[in-house]
């Protein structure tokens, strides 16, 4: 009895209609989970749903424009909120990864409450999936990391939560997305806190710009290599900015620059993962491009850890 996406879609549209007699907003990051949840909720509620995308300033290159386009194509009523200053303000001086995640979760929820109020909604739909609440812990279960859509929620939240994908893993969400005709169904996972958890150490606009530039190179090169048949596209592939400076030499001059870790893993559901075995010629191109194109980076390393013992993201 494998997963039946069409049966799931019919069930959940019905369940969302029952759960939301009024109006709802959906928190939409443009990723597979929240876009899928947005389409489900939009089919259930029509104009009684508003999708809210928040540009946190922690997104990848071109992401906000792309998400706006996707939501438009899917005919989902939506609103784009610019909030980079609020997020960078809240993250100032914070080094601890758990604290980052909680601060971001809280900033999200405040903005969602504001948007819900002006739309007249009393429900919040989220694309929470199984690993989000499992890893966030609670009662017996240990907290591995606070997922922003679970751990950032205040205890006395006014909005009622609706989470149609709660029992699914990524592979099942993708099946639902394909059945719904969602273009981003195969998009790689991207964490809710965005590039903030890919900058180890303090999150500043400058440091986010470094990891954004490196990430763009990693994504382009992996996609190009997979397109040329050099390797299968990993489940997830990205850059992490490390809080480590090392010595380099540029045009006979000593430099003291930043380090990027490249991470690529193969997984089905995100609950276990193995690091991807990447051809050296691909790593070589990534290294050369990052150290030449992203000013300030003079060293690139490749992460060869599995989950467990590591997690996929560094924070």
């Amino acid at each position: 009895m494998k997963f039946d996406a069409n049966a799931f879609i019919a069930e959940q549209i019905e369940a969302i209609r029952r759960a939301v007699p009024t109006k709802a907003i959906i928190a939409c990051s443009g990723g597979v989970d929240s876009t899928t949840a947005a389409v489900l909720a939009s089919r259930a509620l029509g104009d009684r749903l508003l999708a809210v995308y928040i540009d946190t300033g922690l997104m990848r290159r071109g992401e906000t424009e792309d998400v706006a386009q996707t939501l438009k194509e899917l005919n989902v009523r939506h609103r784009i909120v610019q909030a980079a200053d609020e997020f960078f303000g809240a993250l100032k001086g914070i080094l601890d990864p758990e604290k980052k995640r909680t601060v971001i979760g809280r900033a999200f929820i405040e903005l969602f409450e504001r948007e819900a109020q002006s739309f007249g909604a009393d429900h919040l739909v989220q694309g929470t999936i199984a690993p989000d609440w499992i890893e966030s812990g609670g009662q017996l279960r240990d907290r591995i990391k606070t997922h922003h859509n679970v751990g950032g929620l205040p205890e006395t939240m006014k909005l009622k939560l609706v989470e149609p994908l709660r029992d699914l893993y990524k592979d099942e969400v993708r099946a639902v997305a394909r059945a719904l005709g969602v273009r981003v169904s195969e998009r790689q996972p991207f964490p809710g806190p965005g590039l903030a958890v890919r900058v180890v150490g303090e999150v500043t606009p400058d440091r986010v710009a470094l990891v954004r530039g490196a990430s763009a190179v990693v994504e382009e090169e992996f996609q190009a290599a997979a397109g040329r048949g050099l390797m299968p596209l990993p489940w997830q592939y990205f850059a992490v900015l490390l809080p480590v400076q090392t010595v380099g030499v540029h045009g006979d001059l000593r430099v003291y620059g930043h380090t990027i870790a490249v991470r690529a893993v193969d997984s089905i559901d995100g609950m276990t993962a193995v690091y991807s075995k990447i051809p050296h010629e691909v790593l070589d191109r990534i290294s050369i491009r990052i150290t030449n194109e992203v000013a300030g980076i003079n060293r690139v390393v490749y992460d060869v850890s599995n989950k467990p013992p590591s997690t996929i993201e560094w924070e």
């Binding site: 499992i134 890893e135 017996l140 279960r141 240990d142 591995i144 893993y169 559901d269 609950m271």
Partner: peptide, 13 residues
């Protein structure tokens, strides 16, 4: 029976 494991829900699946 859930003893709080990370993979309890995987067993269910």
């Amino acid at each position: 029976v859930d003893n709080g494991g990370q993979w309890t829900h995987r067993e269910w699946r």
